[in-house]
Amino acid sequence: MRNRCIKFSLLLLLAFGLVSYTIPAWIGDPIELKIPKNWPKPTYDFSRNPLTKEGVELGRRLFYDPFLSRNDMISCSNCHLSFTAFTHVDHALSHGIEDRIGTRNSPALMNLAWGRHFMWDGAIDHLDFQALAPIAHPAEMDNSIEKVVQKIQSKPVYKELFFNAFGDSTVSGERLLKALSQFELTLISANSKYDRMILGQDTFTDQEQNGYRLFQKSCASCHTEPLFTNLGFERNGLPIDTTLNDYGRMKITKQPPDSLKFKVPTLRNIEFSYPYMHDGRFKKLREVVNHYAQTTALERKIDLSPNEKVDLVAFLLTLSDKAFLFNPDFSFPRF
């Protein structure tokens, strides 16, 4: 009897041991991103970083944590505030740690799962790596990813959050960046009046409709629907600001044809993402439209009458997505 018992328990044990050894680390509740109807396939490879509720929560927490900066004062949200289309309003050039001023206007964050290049000059080619730049920039967070990992590892609250997201509490650069990506990937804006009009759930006024027609004629080759960007780099006819001497894409490629080319930004939520252009030189949407109607530096001249300019702006305002801007899942998390 005892012998049988031992044999039985050994057998059970082996089974138990095997099972416990082969179960993969628990990595939370999977989330499937809702891709808006008729949109292209996202470029982000989710198979390498599957979204989970816990991963997104960790990313959101990191996004809003000033602990990422050298002096614990600056978080991602300082320059990317949810209520203003995840950008830094009022300042032509965004400022970071100790009020140091950078050289460009912070970009609005949305629909990043479709992004191929990040930053105005496309210096970053993958969303995961984007956060490395502001973390290390002396005028932004003035820190290093190595130090951030050490700091986060020493903060007790993150032990549980990393455990929940990745199956153990170890902090690494890879995990930190992937968690930030997870949160950022959820920032989808696709519920503007324009979107509802496309889905037949809303109608444009005559003015908005005329603005849409003008937009399609003169702007859509770069600001292509539905993302309102062709995701490429274009010359926008702006003269060089000699106090900055920012030649855009050429800084990265070192190819003269790329001189003064900048990444085409999305126009979604543009009502809220002022000031405009890479150096924030225009405070009002009206000024941007005036620039494009005046410049002779574009491949094709854009002709707009004063009334047409007003109509075009009316259309651009249909790209505002309040459900996105005030989504409680995107704002400062309650700690």
Partner: peptide, 12 residues
Amino acid sequence: ISGAMGGDLDPT
């Protein structure tokens, strides 16, 4: 272009 990786490829 494959995103953040761990081990020897960790950005830290």
